[in-house]
Amino acid sequence: MRAVTQVYEGGFSDAVFNSQKVFRALMDAMASPGRAIEIGNLAAAPSPISSVAASVAATLFDHDATVWCDKSITSSAAAIGWLKFHTGLELTSNPSDAQFALIGDLETMPSLESFAKGTSEYPDRSTTIILQIDGFNGPEELTLSGPGIKGTQGFAPSQLPKMFVDQWAANRGAFPRGIDLVFAGKGALAALPRTTRISKKEA
């Protein structure tokens, strides 16, 4: 029963210190948008969940967190079983109800508009989307500015959601409402809080 052992294995080897390490990476990433922060491979979940995405899930998800997973993840019983066993998360089928979203396939992901942006009185009641990508050496470099960034910061994720720059401008325009992004690459993560402005690098 390989699928069964897959579900129970691969959690943090030290729940207290590994989650502290991953949280500090997430905190540094949110406080320094676009900067890739190494965390290594602390957790191992069944395909298609990557090690870094699994580490972020194990750090932030629990029974108080509603999570929307895309089809690439929900179609794997082992992947969903791992998330349930290791985090106790509350799954939702509605992205606009989700505190977190886990995206395995950026090609087919819903628009940012589909997720929770919070209310004007509670803008924190919004979705943090975790996007699985290959890494941070993509072909196109975006130029970031805003809180957390001294001057500008280059950001070149290997994949991006469709029409991302336009979608992000709309998200930025809704501030203080908005969604926040965590990019889970190989061995490292980066974040884009809703405050970040994007301009494509000038040729």
């Binding site: 989650s19 502290q20 949280f23 997430l26 905190m27 949110m30 406080a31 750090t59 932030l60 629990d62 108080d64 967190a65 505190q99 803008p123 924190d124 919004s126 943090t128 957390g148 203080p176 908005g178 926040d180 809080p193 809703r194 405050t195």
Partner: peptide
């Protein structure tokens, strides 16, 4: 669990 709850709040606080 308390740390997770506080950590989630800290991440939102930094974002807003």
């Amino acid at each position: 669990q308390t740390k997770r709850m506080i950590r989630r709040a800290i991440l939102k606080a930094i974002a807003i």
